[in-house]
């Protein structure tokens, strides 16, 4: 076969494969993509049975543990709205109030149930210390941080 013709066929096959891959990728992304919502967006959009990704900060004082279930509220980053979530299972170590989390939730008649193993929190190397948070230790109100056994 003519080398140029051979080359053209190879190029066509390669481009077709690339096009198919790209099309499949775009299709899967848009069909399987789920909206990442803040608390206020979730409250506006949620429909019973719907699955969403909720992103925000764990509200201070909202964490409550009951057996294997953990209850907490996810705060909207911009507005004073929080969505209560019920999560079953072991939570990640970095999970705590005031920390950024993402969790897959299902709307069960206005109650948001967190999907097991879906709760993620930021890597602790990336927290930014709140300014002035350390001033409390300048005096000695908390005392030594070691327990003498």
């Amino acid at each position: 076969m003519d080398p140029n013709r051979k080359r053209a066929i190879r190029l066509t096959v390669a481009l077709t494969a690339a096009l198919l891959l790209a099309s499949a990728l775009i299709y899967v992304s848009f069909s399987a993509g789920r909206d990442e919502l803040t608390a206020s967006q979730l409250l506006n959009k949620a429909k019973p049975g719907g699955q969403y990704i909720l992103a925000g900060t764990v509200e201070n004082g909202s964490i409550r543990r009951q057996g294997e279930r953990t209850y907490f509220s996810v705060l909207d980053p911009k507005r004073r709205i929080a969505v209560p979530v019920s999560y079953t299972g072991v939570v990640p170590d970095p999970f705590a109030q005031g920390r950024a989390v993402m969790v897959d939730v299902t709307d069960q008649g206005g109650r948001f149930i967190g999907q097991q193993n879906s709760l993620t929190t930021k890597c602790p190397s990336k927290y930014q210390a709140a300014s002035g948070a350390l001033k409390q230790t300048a005096g000695e109100p908390l005392g030594p941080a070691t327990v003498k056994s």
């Binding site: 170590d93 890597c123 927290y127 350390l134 230790t137 300048a138 941080a145």
Partner: peptide, 14 residues
């Protein structure tokens, strides 16, 4: 004046 006597510490996970 506002230098702390102790730091916040390295996160235990690290």
């Amino acid at each position: 004046a506002v230098t702390p006597t102790d730091g916040a510490g390295l996160d235990p996970l690290l």
